[in-house]
């Protein structure tokens, strides 16, 4: 495992800053945050070894409510920013997060390529099937026919399937959680953080203000756990089959975990074989290196 993790579990409270979350009461994101604090505590990761990077949106406010180093970056850009952070110091644990609009809408291109690139980081998408911070427009994961402010006559477009997309893009760890089931979600987080490559956790995190369709109750009636049905998470084809289920029965849990993961890009990059690049004390070329490079042009 490339992620620096201390063995001793720590109190989840250590990851709570003075600033309290400002989400709507009852928002699914509270569960996502609390579970992340518990998971990091369980893994005993020192606060300063964590870099939590989000985009823009309600859920992207998360780094402000999590005690670690963090960046609250641009809409849709958490993954390239997080990738850069990992390249600059691969010894840190990097967690990217955001919403479905952020990651599957405006940030879709980066999403696919970050998985293809296989950066060793954990990506948590708080998926509420709506644009919340802009007060309720359709999102890429909104169901077809759903009435929103931007689609008052019903969403005419198709619904994106992030699980199938992640599997197709070569993601080695694909999971889905539900913020209404905290203990189940925590186990997915700890596994994802420990996975030595890109790990996606799509989390149903209901918007209690703007999504009156996909509510906590709606999800509770539908979700079932893959592990209860004997799903083999090492079987990519089985994962792809399960990813297609939507409607009366919606699976959560670990869809796929590559049993033989290839080295992540940061583990494979020849420039990243020593300590984190950011730790270098002396910058610039050594005299011999410089002479050799100049000789190429003579």
């Amino acid at each position: 495992m490339a992620t620096a993790v201390a063995a001793t579990p720590r109190d989840a409270k250590l990851y709570k800053p003075e600033v309290p979350p400002d989400w709507c009461p009852g928002c699914g994101d509270y569960g996502v945050l609390t579970v992340l604090q518990r998971a990091c505590g369980e893994l005993g990761i020192p606060n300063e070894q964590l870099m939590v990077i989000s985009g823009i949106g309600c859920s992207s406010n998360l780094p402000g409510f999590f005690k670690s180093y963090g960046m609250h970056s641009l809409h849709g850009r958490s993954l390239p920013v997080a990738t850069g952070a990992k390249m600059a110091n691969h010894e840190m644990t990097v967690i990217a997060c955001g919403g479905d609009g952020d990651g599957y809408g405006i940030g879709q291109g980066h999403f696919i390529h970050a998985m293809r690139r296989n950066v060793n980081l954990t990506y948590i998408v708080m998926d509420n099937e709506i644009y919340g911070l802009t007060t309720g427009q359709t999102s890429p994961t909104s169901e077809t026919g759903m009435k929103t402010k931007s689609t008052p006559h019903g969403n005419p477009e198709g619904q994106l399937n992030p699980i199938a997309l992640a599997l197709a893009a070569g993601c080695g760890f694909v999971a889905r959680g539900f913020s209404g089931d905290i203990n189940h979600l925590k186990s997915l987080y700890t596994q994802a953080i420990q996975y030595p490559g890109f790990a996606l956790i799509d989390v149903f995190s209901p918007c209690v203000t703007f999504n009156k369709q996909n509510t906590f109750g709606w999800f509770k009636e539908r979700v079932y756990k893959l592990e209860d049905k004997g799903h083999d998470a090492a079987n990519w084809n089985a994962a792809m089959d399960r990813s297609k289920e939507w409607g009366a029965q919606i699976p959560i849990g670990l869809f796929y975990k590559n049993p033989n993961p290839k080295p992540s890009i940061d583990a494979a990059d020849p420039a990243l074989q020593g300590q984190g690049l950011a730790k270098a004390k002396k910058l610039g070329l050594a005299a011999e290196q410089r002479k050799k490079l100049i000789e190429e042009y003579v």
């Binding site: 870099m51 850009r77 920013v81 850069g84 952070a85 980066h110 984190g276 950011a278 910058l283």
Partner: peptide, 12 residues
Amino acid sequence: NMTIGAAQMGVR
């Protein structure tokens, strides 16, 4: 964005 993410960590 990647360049900026890297720079934030303290590399040039």
